[in-house]
Design a protein around this nucleic acid. Sequence first.
DNA 1: AAATGCCAGATCGTATACAATCGGACGGCA
DNA 2: TGCCGTCCGATTGTATACGATCTGGCATTT
Lengths: 230, 230
Amino acid sequence: MRPDADGNDGSQRAIRDAIRDAIVDRRLMPGTKLTETDVGALFHVSRTLVRGALQALAHEGLVTVERNRGAFVANPSPGEARQIFATRRIIEPGILAEAARHITPAHIRQLRERLLDEGRLMNERGQSARRAEIKASGDFHLHIAAMTGNAVMQRFMDELIARSSLVIALYGQSTVSSCGHTEHMNIVDAIEAGQIDRASRLMVHHIHHIEADLDLRARRTHELRDALLP
Amino acid sequence: MRPDADGNDGSQRAIRDAIRDAIVDRRLMPGTKLTETDVGALFHVSRTLVRGALQALAHEGLVTVERNRGAFVANPSPGEARQIFATRRIIEPGILAEAARHITPAHIRQLRERLLDEGRLMNERGQSARRAEIKASGDFHLHIAAMTGNAVMQRFMDELIARSSLVIALYGQSTVSSCGHTEHMNIVDAIEAGQIDRASRLMVHHIHHIEADLDLRARRTHELRDALLP
DNA sequence: AAATGCCAGATCGTATACAATCGGACGGCA
DNA sequence: TGCCGTCCGATTGTATACGATCTGGCATTT
């Protein structure tokens, strides 16, 4: 089911995924220049493949490309961040309802296992634990999307979650809100109880809470260029 | 080579847009091979730019790329078509609600003007009129999405509408349903009356009707390759 | 000293070159 | 005749070459 319909073989795909992971994991800071030659040297490939990967990432919104200047790790503005979460609030309740129609007890079990891992991560401290926590939190939403069996939707969600992770890493307060985990649990409970409406409402609130835990007022840019130019 | 009078990075974008329009307008039949050299010759550019454009279109789902075989105009399966419309049914009611919060009388007037054009096209016969009608119908949905002021959402809708147009061109019956136009009018009426819930319901039904007017049972492929391989 | 003009290095945009792969045609063989 | 293996042209995948453009520093001017 995954013979790469994109047609891109390992090389370009591998580069794209590696950079994406690095961005989402925040090992690459927003605004970082992604020089084609340098990236190519790291992966032992030519600029051609790197360019392809960067263009794909630009399409996903994780990288911005400026003509004759190059590619940079995306530095989403607060406005962009709000749009991302607004989009999620529109889409995800619908996804939940659709997923509920296809759900099996096995799926529920899978979700609960995820939640256990999530809970474990929550109790750890440190950078890497926090990163893992952000990732796990996103995976929860992706797993629900996967249950719809709708590949189109799933691709949209992939993009939204990746960009959300970037935004959270950027604007998240150091005091991580621990309510996300319990909210996930509540959502699964509601799904299992067949209370889809309630689950959808919980999901909307949950996304609201994620956004509310960010500090979107102060723009954390020291790059005047993209602070002044739109 | 030529400093493209467009001013911006016109070359690759121009090629991509030209091919996209051709696909959505159905001047390029699904399954048509898009040989890099040939396309490049048409636009007087090298394969490099063509490849970029084709990869971008592949990302949008309008083109499929098979490794070592090349790019083809997408030939969406009935299953894919259903996923596209299912996604629209999930997203568009939410878009409608969001758009309603930003709407002004000027917007309503714009929508009504669109509808007049649509009505005019409906009364004409012939291939090109039908194509224009499909396009106008999609534009209606895109305009509503634009009113949300949410660029993320808008990009998703761009993709969904483009793919929908392709699907309609592929699987649409020759007897075009004329109810789409009146449904659009009813939706605008509901929005103007402030009955957002009703408008959303109408929108869902409308999308259902569009899908119901397709013949998604018989796969119209004579390409055994992609009929047999998943 | 501040501002301006100019040059050089770095980096990108595009074209082209070369290698890898595929698909069809041709011819041998049962 | 029909089938199968082999070869060749066509097309793609990747790398490299070369001109265009930007950036930053240095020298010159006021």
